[in-house]
């Protein structure tokens, strides 16, 4: 594999202008402070990144932040969507992350079993 192969992906993606305009509709923010990482946040972050890529969700951005001050409920994630309350999920693991993508991100129904706060 060679990085130059990325040119083909660029050309294909640039053809779809409509999709590019929707980039960042939803932001998933994973708490990756020291205690988050120690609680397994890296596996959660990986599950989100892989699931979003596998479903080709170009309008979803996965990013990281530090400690959220709720160490007992880590790994923590926030789902931020314009015009909707921010949803905070706690005690996440890779399996729960996949469920959040399927039900909340794709279908628009927050997974109430894992919600610890909405703001």
């Amino acid at each position: 594999m060679n990085l130059e192969e990325l040119k083909a992906i660029r050309e294909k993606a640039q053809k779809d202008i409509q999709l590019r305009q929707k980039e960042g509709r939803i932001k998933i923010i994973v708490g990756m402070g020291t205690s988050g990482i120690a609680s397994g946040a890296r596996g959660v972050l990986k599950a989100f990144v892989e699931e979003i890529a596998a479903r080709n969700l170009v309008d979803v951005m996965v990013t990281q932040t530090g400690e959220k001050g709720l160490a007992s409920q880590e790994p923590l994630i926030e789902v931020v969507e314009e015009g909707k309350p921010t949803v905070i999920y706690g005690n996440m693991n890779p399996e729960k992350a996949k469920r959040v993508v399927a039900e909340h991100i794709v279908s628009g129904n927050p997974v109430l079993d894992y919600v610890i706060e909405t703001t």
Binding site: M1, L3, E4, E5, L6, K7, I9, R10, K12, A13, Q14, R20, E23, V49, E50, I52, A53, A54, R55, N56, L57, V58, M61, V62
Partner: peptide, 19 residues
């Protein structure tokens, strides 16, 4: 190489993971 396409684009993520 991506020339403005985000490195977090799903297809780029899949490519880099394999790379």
């Amino acid at each position: 190489i991506l020339g403005g396409l985000s490195i977090s684009h799903p297809e780029v993520v899949t490519f880099l993971s394999n790379y």
